[in-house]
C-alpha cells in the first residue's frame, strides 16, 4: 500500500465535493424536522432530483437550469408527502418510506434513456490569484459554485432559524403545534412550506450527485445518501453548523475509503465500501448515548396535527 499517493490537499478538496450532496439534503431535512415533521423520503426526493436535474441539463443544455429543475422536482415530490401527511393525516413514517420507494422507481423510469450520457461539469470558480495559493487556494477557493451555494445555505438557515420572526414561528410549530395553533399561526401552512423547502434542498443535493460529483446518471445512484442525511440531522442535534461539520466528516470518510481503495490497501474493498455506513451507525450510537432519546429533538417531531383534536 502506498499511502504517499494520497495527497492531503486533494483529499480535503474532494471531501468538500463528496459532502455537498448530503449537506444540502440534511440542511433541508433539518428545517423540516424543526417544523415538527419527520420526512423519511429524503432518499426518494434526492434521486428524483438527480434524475430530473440530469435530464433537464441534457435537454436544455444548461447545468444551472438542471439544478433549478431538480429543486422544483424535489419540492413537488415533497409536497406529495406534505399533502398526504398534513392534509390527509397519514402516518409520517409510512408516507416517507412510500416517497422513497416511489421516488426510486420513478427516477429509474425517467432516467432510462439517459444512462451513459455525459454532461459538461460545472467549471471550477476561478478566483484569480486566490485560487493559485498553495493548499489554501485549492481547498478554499477552487471549487464549483454549488459548494459555495451550499455553504451560504448553511449560514442562511442558521440565521433564519435563529434571528428571524418566521424562523421563530417555524420552531414554535415544531415544538408545540397546539400552542402555535392557539396563537393563530397556520400550523399546516408553515409545515407545508418547510416540507417544500426540504424537498428542494434534497433535489439540489441529488442533482449535485448526477451533475457534478459523478457526473452521470446511473440507477440507484444516491446509494443511501438520503438516509445518511437523515442520520446527520440527528448527529447534528438539529443545529445547522453541526450539520456542516457532520457532512464534512462523513465526506472525509467517503473520500478516504475511496483513496485507500485506489492506493491498494490490504483491507478488503467491501469493508471499505461499507465503512461510511458503519461509521454512521457508530456515530448514531455515540450521539444517542450522550443525549438519550430525543434530547434535542423538536418536541412535536413526527406527530400529526388536526385542529379538532
Amino acid at each position: 500500500m502506498d499511502l504517499t499517493s494520497i495527497s492531503p490537499t486533494l483529499l480535503i478538496a474532494s471531501l468538500m465535493v463528496a459532502a455537498t450532496p448530503i449537506l444540502l439534503a440534511a440542511l433541508g431535512e433539518l428545517v423540516v424536522e424543526k417544523a415538527g415533521v419527520l420526512n423519511l423520503g429524503v432518499e426518494g426526493m434526492m434521486i428524483i432530483g438527480a434524475a430530473i436535474g440530469f435530464i433537464a441539463a441534457v435537454e436544455i443544455g444548461s447545468v444551472w437550469l438542471g439544478f433549478a429543475a431538480a429543486a422544483l422536482g424535489g419540492a413537488v415530490m415533497a409536497l406529495l408527502f406534505g399533502v398526504l401527511t398534513q392534509l390527509l393525516l397519514s402516518n409520517q413514517v409510512a408516507t416517507g418510506l412510500a416517497l422513497t420507494l416511489f421516488g426510486l422507481g420513478l427516477a429509474s423510469l425517467l432516467g432510462q434513456g439517459y444512462v451513459g450520457i455525459k454532461v459538461d461539469a460545472l467549471p471550477r470558480l476561478d478566483m484569480g490569484p486566490l485560487s493559485d495559493l498553495p493548499f489554501v487556494g485549492r481547498v478554499l477557493f477552487g471549487h464549483d459554485p454549488m459548494v459555495y451555494v451550499s455553504l451560504a445555505l448553511v449560514a442562511a438557515t442558521w440565521a433564519f432559524l435563529r434571528f428571524t420572526r418566521a424562523g421563530l414561528i417555524l420552531r414554535a410549530v415544531g415544538e408545540s403545534h397546539d400552542a402555535a395553533h392557539a396563537l393563530g399561526y397556520h400550523v399546516v401552512r408553515v409545515r407545508l412550506l418547510a416540507i417544500a423547502f426540504g424537498g428542494a434542498c434534497a433535489g439540489l443535493g441529488g442533482a449535485y450527485l448526477s451533475l457534478v460529483r459523478v457526473p452521470q446518471w446511473t440507477e440507484g445512484m444516491t446509494a443511501g445518501a438520503g438516509w445518511i442525511a437523515l442520520a446527520l440531522v440527528v448527529f447534528a442535534s438539529w443545529k445547522p453548523a453541526r450539520v456542516l461539520v457532520g457532512a464534512y466528516l462523513f465526506g472525509g470518510i467517503t473520500v478516504l475509503q475511496l483513496n485507500l481503495q485506489t492506493a491498494g490497501a490490504t483491507i478488503p474493498v467491501e469493508l471499505l465500501s461499507a465503512a461510511p455506513y458503519l461509521v454512521t451507525i457508530l456515530v448514531l450510537v455515540l450521539i444517542s448515548r450522550r443525549g438519550r432519546r430525543g434530547g434535542d429533538a423538536p418536541a412535536d417531531l413526527g406527530r400529526a396535527f388536526h385542529a379538532s383534536s
Binding site: A98, F102, G105
Partner: peptide, 10 residues
C-alpha cells in the same frame, strides 16, 4: 412496475 408499486402505497 416499481413506480406503480410505490403509487399503490401512496
Amino acid at each position: 412496475i416499481s413506480a406503480f408499486q410505490g403509487m399503490l402505497l401512496f
